[in-house]
Design a binder for these strands. Structure first.
Lengths: 190, 190
DNA sequence: GACGATATAGACCGATCGATCTACTCGTCA
DNA sequence: TGACGAGTAGATCGATCGGTCTATATCGTC
C-alpha cells in the first residue's frame, strides 16, 4: 500500500515545511521544522537527504498544487478564455487579501536562495514557465494576435500584483492588474 | 569636519553591505560583511548598534539613491510626462539586463525579514510610497483622469517587471510592461 | 608632547546552525 | 518467536551565528 491512514513523518514534514518556509522564509531552522512536524531528526535525513532536499520537495509540491489552483480557477470560470484569464486575477485578489499572505513563495525562494546551483531555482523557473504556458494556451484559444507576447505581459501583471500585495497590503493590486489585463485581451479587436 | 578624504569604516561598511545584502540577501553573516568592508568588528556596533541597524541604514541609503535614480531618469527624458514615465521602463530594462541583477532589493528584504517589527519594513514601505507619489505627480501633469489609480497600476507594472526579470532573465519583461504602461497612459484621450 | 576619540585585531561568549550518530521502541511479517 | 525496517529521542559534532570584551594602534587637536 502506498496510501496511509495517518500522515507519516514524510507528509508531516512536507506540510510543516510548506507553512513555515512561507511564513518565515527558506531560512527557517531545521529544529523549527522538526518541532512543527513532530518528527525525529533522523527522519528528515532519511526521507530528504537534508534541509535543501526538503525545501526543494516543498517547492515542487507547492508548484504542482498552485498550478492546479490556476487550472481549477479557470475551469470554474467557464469556457470563454477571456473570462477564464480574468478569473485568475479575481482569484489572486482573494489570495492577496488573505491575512497571512506574504507574497509569491517562488519569488521569495528565488531571491533568498543565494546559491545559484540550489535545485530550488530550477523548480521556480519551471513553475513560471508552466503558468506562462497555461496563459499562452488560453490566449491562443482567444485568437489573440500575439499570444506569446501577451502571455509574457500577463506574467508581469500576475507577479506585479503579488509583489505589490506583499509590500502594500490593502491597495488591491490584483484589481489594478486585472484592468490592465483587460486592455491586453482586447488587443486587435477594435 | 564631517567630510573625509578616504572613506571611513562607516562608509566602507555601508558600501560592502549594500553589495553583499543584494547579492546574497539580508541573511549574510556579520563576518562576511566585516571582511568585505575591511572593518573591525567593534566599528559595526559603534556605528550601527548591530546587524539590524546596518541593514536598515543600507535600505534607507539605497532607497534614497534609487529614488534619485527615478528622478534623474525622468528629468533626462524631457518635459513631456508621458515620455518621462515611459523612460522609467526603458531604464528598468537596462537595470534588469545587468549581469548581476537579482530582483528588487526592497521586495527581497520585505520577504526575507521574517520579523514584522524589523525597522527595515518601514523603509521599504515608504520607498514604495514615494515612488508611487512620484508617478502620480507625473500622471497629474499629464491630466490623467485617474492619477491615483493609474499610479497603482504603474507600481504593479514596475514590480512585475522586476520580479519576472529575477525569475526569467532574458525575457525583456520591462518592454512588456512598458507597452502596458502606454495603454494606461492613453486612457481617456480616445 | 600629551590627551582623547576613533580605529583595528582578535579572543571570547552563549546560542544556533545543519548534520551524524547511537540507542531504543514499535509494528509487521516470515 | 524472532528478525527486520521504520520511526523516535536525544547526545554530539564542528561550524557559524550575532554580539561583547580587552588590548593596542592611529589620528587630530590642544
Amino acid at each position: 500500500m502506498t496510501t496511509r491512514v495517518l500522515p507519516g513523518p514524510r507528509e508531516r514534514l512536507l506540510e510543516a515545511a510548506k507553512e513555515l518556509t512561507y511564513a518565515q522564509g527558506v531560512g527557517v531552522g531545521v529544529d523549527a521544522l522538526l518541532k512543527a512536524a513532530n518528527v525525529a531528526r533522523r527522519s528528515l535525513y532519511e526521507h530528504f537527504g537534508g534541509k535543501d532536499g526538503l525545501i526543494t520537495e516543498v517547492l515542487r509540491l507547492s508548484a504542482a498544487e498552485d498550478e492546479a489552483a490556476y487550472e481549477r480557477t479557470m475551469r470554474a470560470a467557464g469556457d470563454d478564455p477571456r473570462r477564464r484569464i480574468l478569473a485568475v486575477f479575481d482569484w489572486l485578489g482573494e489570495v492577496i487579501e488573505e491575512p497571512d499572505f506574504r507574497g509569491c513563495r517562488y519569488l521569495a525562494a528565488e531571491l533568498a536562495l543565494a546559491d545559484p546551483d540550489h535545485p530550488g531555482h530550477e523548480v521556480t523557473r519551471r513553475y513560471n514557465a508552466r503558468i506562462r504556458a497555461l496563459l499562452e494556451s488560453e490566449l491562443r484559444d482567444l485568437d489573440h494576435p500575439r499570444p506569446a507576447h501577451a502571455a509574457d505581459q500577463l506574467l508581469v501583471l500576475i507577479n506585479g500584483a503579488l509583489a505589490v500585495g506583499a509590500t502594500r497590503p490593502g491597495t488591491l493590486p490584483a484589481a489594478a492588474a486585472r484592468e490592465l489585463a483587460e486592455h491586453l485581451l482586447d488587443e486587435g479587436r477594435g
